[in-house]
C-alpha cells in the first residue's frame, strides 16, 4: 500500500517485454501497450464502424464520420485547399492523442500522453516537418517569416530575435502543454483519491470532488487533443502561406 500513496507512481514505465536492438532499449512497456491499444481502438472506430457503408449511418459509423468531418473542417478552415494532402497526418495525430488521453481516463490504465518523451517527439517531428515544408515551398524567402511586414527598420533586430525565439519554442510549448495537462490532471485525481479512505465516513467529500474532476478531465482529454491538432494545423498553414 505504501507505493500506492505516491501520486506519481502511475506514471512509472514498466518494461513488460524487454527487447534490445543493438545498444537501444526497445522494450515493450505499459506505454507501448497503450499506444498499441490506442491504434487498435482508432482503427476499430474508423475502419470497422464504417464497414456497413450505410447511406444512413448507425451510431458508430456516425461517430467515425463526425470525427472525419470535424478534422476535415479544421484543416479546411485553418489551412485551406493546400491542407488536403496533410489531412491524413493531422487526423492521425488527433485520433492518436485523443485515444491516448481517453484511454488514460480508465482507472489503473496508463496515459502515454503524460510523458514528455512522447509529446516532445511528436512536437519535434511536427516542427521539423513544418520547417521542411516551408523551405521546400519558399526556399530562402522562408526567412522573411521572421520579419513581419511593415515593421520599422530600427525594430527589425528586436523583432527578428523575438520571432526566431518564438518559432523555436513552438515544439516545447506544444509538447509541454499536452504532457503537463495530462500529468497534472492524473496527479490531482490520485491526490484527491488518497484522501477517501483516511477520511473514513467523510470520504464522500473527496469522492464528490473526484467525480467533478473526472468530468473536467474528460473535457481536458478532448480539449488537449483538439489544441494539439489545431496548433499543428496553424503551424502547417504558416509554413505554406508564411504570414
Amino acid at each position: 500500500m505504501a507505493e500506492a500513496h505516491n501520486p506519481l507512481d502511475q506514471f512509472v514505465i514498466q518494461a513488460w517485454v524487454p527487447i534490445k536492438i543493438g545498444d537501444f532499449d526497445a522494450s515493450f512497456t505499459n506505454s507501448s501497450a497503450f499506444m498499441l491499444l490506442s491504434v487498435i481502438c482508432a482503427t476499430a472506430l474508423m475502419v470497422l464502424a464504417v464497414r456497413p457503408r450505410a447511406g444512413v449511418p448507425g451510431r458508430w459509423q456516425l461517430l467515425a464520420e463526425l470525427s472525419y468531418q470535424f478534422i476535415a473542417k479544421m484543416v479546411a478552415d485553418n489551412i485551406g485547399k493546400e491542407g488536403r494532402s496533410y489531412f491524413p497526418l493531422i487526423f492521425s495525430i488527433f485520433i492518436f492523442v485523443l485515444f491516448g488521453n481517453l484511454l488514460g481516463m480508465i482507472p489503473y490504465s496508463f496515459t502515454f500522453t503524460s510523458h514528455i518523451a512522447v509529446t516532445l517527439t511528436m512536437a519535434l517531428l511536427i516542427f521539423i516537418m513544418v520547417t521542411l515544408i516551408a523551405f521546400f515551398k519558399h526556399g530562402m524567402k522562408f526567412f522573411s517569416f521572421f520579419l513581419p511586414e511593415g515593421v520599422p527598420i530600427i525594430l527589425a533586430p528586436l523583432m527578428i530575435a523575438i520571432e526566431v525565439i518564438s518559432y523555436f519554442t513552438r515544439p516545447f510549448s506544444l509538447s509541454v502543454r499536452l504532457f503537463a495537462n495530462m500529468m497534472a490532471g492524473h496527479t490531482l485525481l490520485k491526490v484527491i483519491g488518497g484522501f477517501v479512505v483516511p477520511l473514513g465516513i467523510f470520504g464522500f467529500v473527496p469522492v464528490a470532488g473526484l467525480v467533478a474532476v473526472m468530468g473536467l478531465e474528460f473535457l481536458i482529454a478532448f480539449l488537449q487533443a483538439y489544441i494539439f491538432t489545431i496548433l499543428t494545423c496553424i503551424y502547417i498553414n504558416d509554413a505554406i502561406h508564411l504570414h
Partner: peptide, 29 residues
C-alpha cells in the same frame, strides 16, 4: 532510460496508425 523505448514504440505505432488512416480508413469514409 525510458525515453528510447517510448520513442521507438511511438514511431512504430503512430506509423502504423498513419498508414491505416491514410490508406484505408479515411478514403473509405
Amino acid at each position: 532510460s525510458t525515453f528510447t523505448p517510448q520513442i521507438i514504440w511511438l514511431i512504430i505505432t503512430f506509423g502504423v496508425l498513419y498508414l491505416l488512416m491514410a490508406k484505408l480508413a479515411l478514403p473509405r469514409i
